[in-house]
């Protein structure tokens, strides 16, 4: 058997077990150190506060600004989390060990992806009420739709981010290159997230508009995850 490859097919119990092991490893490391979660959260909150200092005047936030600021903060914080998550793997050479393990590479990718999604979700749990409060945005008026938008947008962002951060582990100037590569590709996801969230905040709520953006986000997620699964296998072969 070639190192790093196996005959395990996607979505079989062995595949799911590998995903769970990688995810559990990442979550255990993070629970013990709290490094990425705390720094990401603090950074995201700082971003939102800076926007609030700059834009909120006499207690009034600019109309439609909350959705954009929320997703910009998540994007910036996600970039930080992605960079750090893989820098940790690089320093200890644990990524090499992971890739040498006789497990399917897509399972490693999915495990890392779920770890990043969990980290971002933890950040969003704090970020959403903060944006709601500072920008008087009434984000929680439609919690079902908000949850759908946040989950799909986070998966789209993390799907590309996890792939690019993993690819760049050994690249020169990786800290600079990650946002350079990531932002153009995830712009459509962020646009859909912002537009969907903006539609949620309208006084005359229109579920059709939100559903449209949500479906678009699901499409992006499917395309990006499938493409990333294939690319991860091919790119991480050395």
């Amino acid at each position: 058997m070639t190192p790093g490859r196996s005959s395990v097919r996607p979505l079989t119990p062995a595949f799911v077990r590998t995903v769970w092991m990688v995810l559990r490893k990442d979550l255990t490391v993070e629970m013990r150190s709290g490094e990425i979660a705390y720094t990401t959260l603090f950074f995201a909150a700082s971003c939102v506060l800076i926007f609030a200092f700059a834009l909120v005047r006499e207690g009034r936030a600019p109309a439609g600004g909350a959705a954009g600021i929320l997703w910009i903060a998540i994007l910036f914080a996600g970039t930080l989390a992605l960079g750090r998550a893989f820098e940790r793997e690089r320093q200890a050479e644990t990524l090499r060990a992971l890739l040498l393990a006789p497990v399917p590479r897509p399972a490693i990718y999915v495990g890392k992806l779920l770890g990043i999604v969990a980290l971002l979700a933890a950040t969003e749990v704090v970020l959403l009420p903060l944006v709601d409060f500072l920008f008087t945005a009434r984000l929680f008026a439609h919690p079902f739709w908000l949850t759908g938008l946040v989950i799909t947008c986070t998966i789209g962002l993390a799907a590309v981010g996890t792939l690019f951060a993993a690819m760049l582990v050994r690249a020169r100037s990786r800290d600079m290159l990650l946002p350079v590569l990531l932002y153009p590709v995830v712009v459509p996801v962020i646009i859909a997230g912002v537009q969907g969230t903006t539609a949620l905040l309208q006084p005359a709520f229109d579920a059709t508009v939100v559903r449209f953006w949500l479906l678009l986000l699901v499409t992006f997620d499917v395309v990006f995850v499938v493409l990333a699964l294939w690319t991860f296998e091919a790119v991480m072969s050395d």
Binding site: L168, A171, S173, L227
Partner: peptide
Amino acid sequence: YGGPGSDKLAAGVALF
């Protein structure tokens, strides 16, 4: 600016 191995990494970006 990616250094050695950037050919494969760039190929991944090109797919997107």
